[in-house]
Design a protein around this nucleic acid. Structure first.
Length: 371
RNA sequence: GGGUCGGUGGCGGAGUGGUCAAUCGCACCUGACUGUAAAUCAGGCGACGUAAGUCUACGGGGGUUCAAAUCCCUCCCGGCCCA
């Protein structure tokens, strides 16, 4: 990483649920909870904001329930910051990857519910309405994230559609602000999403058009890795440069720790990813390397962590603590052998402790990268 | 003692003359996981070999057959029934 080119920045975001300083990492609480974790666990892991999902909450528990309790904060009792994703990612993960799961048109998206197969129409307007009903602090425009290996003309099509939808989202957003009489202090922040796959010219074009519409922040859309799983460094670096300096930059779905480190240095402010929790549930633990013990500076050019798989038989009689530099419940109290035993026994407590630990690792990383 | 059913890889359990080194599940070993259809998915799992392949295997022994986990005899072991 060329340090002289670092675009690191620190910003304060003000929302109706409080302030937060960038950079920060949000775990995915897709259905309103981070799988297996309580809010005590999340606070323990120093989590200050989370991402919920418009489409998944709309399907379950459904907006009728959310209405009755007046919003997702009340329903979950999580009083800190919430950002809702629009359902755009499900256009990719459900439909682009599995065309029988729905249909995308310029006008709308027809989703086939993965829960019961029922059909649901989501328009950009509806996505925004749902997000207002959820009452979140930050919201995202419905977008169309195509797989990166689509031919360029199909990526362009997705870019055009994303821009058109962003315009409709912005209009609906303004309509809802007026209709609900939300003052400027309390208004949720709105994010547009930049598409364009691995094509810089398309990314640049998409940014230009989105900025014309005008958003509080901009997200990096679609996958930030290529078909082989390589991080698209140059695309992320360049896209951040295209974006206005005074806007928020949200690297959706990023990512692995080293990718977050890079993105932050390119000027991205916010991150979310399922990795720490999903891999935690699957027994994969992030361990700080010795360099962490040195106060302050971490050399991110070197490998600063390692992954271990608690399911591996070699931990059966490994009575060492997990991570000697971590102060989470798991590392302070239990051995590798004991955690291995929990995973072997399919004990949910193992998943929970591993998820808390991995999130704490991510939270600590967000502090380290500021230095 | 008589009758009867059965003994298959770490376990459970298919297979009942060739396509069987043997379906499947569990266990075990190893991967993967990136805006969560994921407490999920993929691969491996007799020995030796990179491989083609070779060898040893379906309770023990013997036999029939070109060919046996599969048929016959016998022994050992277990369940159930009768005495």
């Amino acid at each position: 990483m060329r340090k002289e080119e670092s675009k690191k920045r620190i910003k304060i975001i003000k929302t109706k649920s409080g302030e937060i300083q960038t950079p920060f990492f949000m775990p995915d609480a897709t259905r309103g909870f981070v799988k297996s974790l309580s809010f005590f666990d999340l606070k323990e892991a120093k989590i200050k904001a989370m991402v919920v999902n418009t489409y998944h909450l709309y399907l379950q528990p459904g907006m009728e329930i959310i209405h009755q309790v007046k919003g997702i904060h009340n329903f979950t009792n999580w009083k800190r910051i919430l950002l809702s994703d629009s359902g755009g990612y499900q256009v990719f993960s459900l439909i682009h990857k599995n065309p029988q799961m729905g249909k995308i048109t310029d006008r709308e998206v027809i989703f086939k519910s993965p829960i019961d197969g029922s059909l649901h129409k989501i328009t950009p307007e509806k996505s925004i309405q749902i997000q207002f009903d959820l009452g979140v602090d930050m919201m995202v425009c419905l977008d169309d994230p195509p797989p990166n290996d689509y031919p360029k003309e199909k990526i362009l099509k997705a870019v055009e559609r994303t821009i058109a939808w962003a315009k409709r989202c912005k209009e609906e957003y303004e309509k809802q602000i007026e209709k609900r009489k939300i003052n400027s202090e309390k208004r949720p922040l709105l994010f547009g999403v930049v598409q364009g796959g691995e094509h810089l010219d398309l990314r640049q074009y998409c940014v230009k058009e989105l900025v014309k519409i005008g958003f509080d922040g901009y997200g990096f859309g679609a996958r930030h890795i290529d078909a082989e799983g390589n991080f698209l460094e140059e695309i992320l670096r360049a896209t951040a440069k295209f974006l206005p300096e005074n806007s928020l930059r949200f690297a959706l779905g990023v990512g692995k720790p080293e990718d977050i480190v890079k993105c932050f240095s390119y000027g991205w402010d916010m991150f979310d990813c399922v990795i720490p929790t999903r891999e935690g549930r699957h027994g994969r633990i992030f361990l700080r390397k010795d360099s962490w013990k040195k106060e302050n500076n971490l050399n991110f050019d070197e490998k600063f962590y390692e992954n271990i798989n608690m399911n591996n038989g070699k931990y059966k009689n490994d009575f060492k603590p997990l991570d000697k530099f971590c102060d989470c419940e798991l590392c302070q109290n239990y051995t590798r052998a004991y955690l291995h035993h929990m995973f072997s026994s399919k004990e949910p407590l193992g998943m929970r402790l591993a998820s808390i630990h991995n999130l704490k690792f991510y939270s600590d990383l967000m502090e380290k990268i500021k230095i």
